[in-house]
Design a protein around this nucleic acid. Structure first.
Lengths: 337, 337
DNA sequence: TTGAAAGCGCTAACAC
DNA sequence: GTGTTAGCGCTTTCAA
């Protein structure tokens, strides 16, 4: 593979000159430059980013730590959307992305900092990390610039992207209350997710605001899984037939509840209103189409990359970006009769 | 950031010894090794993969060239699934993945080989590339090991993964014929995709096999897009109301046709049978659930990584991997009445 | 069992 | 404008 040395030899100049010419420095004779560029093209030279990074101490590379990069992740397209957003902005800024293997057994032995430092990534975007993940503390303690998706951690080098989950959930409750529902249950995710807490809080605040009673036995965990939500939903709905509306902390769980209702012969939305959270692709395609609190996951990814690169360039003061969410009314909600 | 030099100094040995100790060579005194490992831990040393790669001339990195990493790609989860499969195998083999930016305007100026050589990736997996993409020729001509998804190109360093699209399409036709359908139309993708040709061929072969007439005006392009398929589907179905079954080259297009049918008041499957291709997540969630030719996209990704790494290690003779497909009978197909 | 020295391909002072 | 030189952090002969 051709190097600048080869070019230097062919052009009869020093490697320094070649380096300068190829990097567009001004202090190079126009003729020399032309000759060098000509030769570079001829021998199909491509700069060795490794060598350059080694001496420049920057790689223009961002690491990606994604937990949901698994088969199940395909159902909700969240991980994918975020990734797409990240890719979009990083591409525009000429940063490359490296996907870290957290799946690998070998890799799991490495600490977070090791993972990052080895590859000399300039920053990291972390997605789908849980509260109890040991990496989380490391992320906070290390001084590697990092942006987390939906995990509120903040310091000099760490920031995060999220939506207002409290407000989002309140919107859902408010809408259900507007429709005349008073017996509202909630299927929440699991305790290892930060957003769960928030969504629950929003649910409770919303109920309070609407003067509705909060019943702890009407708030159950669905583990963010469709099947689990179907099970607990069925239990809940058969034990308390008076429940007329369910707010779910994810669309996938809402789909589970829809299935539960169907099996029990409970008509949605006539006998049961359901609101989900996320607005995944499936939400608008199922029948009846799911009313949900929509998050713009693409923008979350885009903003994450924006924030991270802002931190890297030190042009960014803030460490938090809040993305809007929005109630999308579709067909699973209806006035209480 | 700590280097082996630092360790050497602290341990009172040479960098050579440190390097050997840390890389598990046998010719190092047990005590020396222990001391070195101890110090390495203390000063939080992580090896600089850049420096190592520079001298070792291998990066344990695989490049990913993905065209469908865009917002629309989220609807069919194909790109994501393939990515997941790739990630799985590469993780197990301790390879890292770098996502190339083909989106960026800057990057588009670079040739394929430049992109790869700059980062010194050992191989590349290419997904979603079209026939008319200038990169394609480069891929073939360059000697960088490469595996393509669904693009039949083969030489010493290039291989591909695909499913038997001809056979898959024949299965679809055969099933429709079994159900008594004779007036079968096809919505195909666009001409820039290799699979389109194959699926069309399979369709025609299937029709021939079943002794059914192939009508060219009953084969139309839906550009692999839901909306486009809805439009052309509507035109087709209203012009030829005798069509009782439609085979679509993708699930997304099948959804479009379902919508078209709905708008025209044509009942699916009673008045119109529809078969899709891919088995995306949506397929099993829509109502009625879509009958389709299922491809295991996760396995395609996994196999692609497997093949590529096989080529890299020179343990692989073949350059092609064929993944099974399967007819999944659901609710959009029914006997012709 | 260990070390000195060379070199991977590149950039960047500092001369000239 | 251009070249000399040193050095980024690591591995690897070759000698000792």
């Amino acid at each position: 593979m051709a190097t600048i040395k080869d070019i230097a030899k062919l052009a009869g100049v020093s490697v320094t000159t070649v380096s300068r010419a190829l990097n567009g420095y001004s202090d190079v004779n126009a003729k020399t430059r032309q000759k060098i560029e000509q030769i570079a093209k001829e021998i199909e030279y491509s700069p060795n980013a490794l060598a350059r990074s080694l001496v420049m101490k920057q790689t223009r590379t961002i690491g990606l730590l994604v937990s949901g990069l698994s088969r199940e992740g395909a159902k909700d397209n969240i991980v994918f959307d975020v990734l797409t957003g990240i890719n979009e902005y990083c591409g525009a800024q000429d940063y490359d992305l490296v996907l870290f293997n957290t799946t690998s057994s070998k890799q799991k032995e490495k600490t977070y900092a090791q993972l990052c430092r080895e590859r000399r990534v300039e920053g990291v975007i972390v997605q789908g990390i849980k509260k109890d993940d040991p990496y989380l503390i490391e992320i906070f303690e290390s001084n590697i610039p990092c942006v987390l998706i939906d995990v509120p951690v903040e310091n000099e080098t760490t920031g995060y992207i999220t939506t207002d989950n409290v407000d989002g959930s309140m919107k859902a409750v408010r809408y259900l209350a507007e429709l005349g529902h008073t017996n509202i249950a909630m299927i929440n995710g699991h305790d290892q997710a930060f957003v769960s807490k928030e969504r629950r809080k929003g649910f409770e605040l919303g109920m309070l605001e609407q003067g509705l009673p909060i019943r702890n036995d009407w708030i159950v965990n669905g583990e963010y899984a469709e099947l689990k939500a179907e099970q607990v939903g069925q239990e809940l709905l058969s034990e308390y037939p008076e429940i007329s509306a369910v707010f779910c902390a994810s669309d996938l769980m809402a789909l589970g509840v829809m299935r539960a209702a169907k099996q029990m012969g409970k008509k949605v939305p006539e006998e049961l209103s359901i609101i989900g959270y996320d607005d995944i692709t499936l939400a608008s395609y199922v029948t009846p189409a799911l009313t949900t609190i929509a998050q713009d996951t693409f923008r979350m990814g885009y903003a994450a990359a924006e924030l991270l690169i802002g931190i890297l360039k030190q042009t960014e003061e803030s460490r938090v970006r809040l993305i809007e969410n929005e109630l999308k009314i579709r067909e699973t909600t209806k006035e209480k009769t």
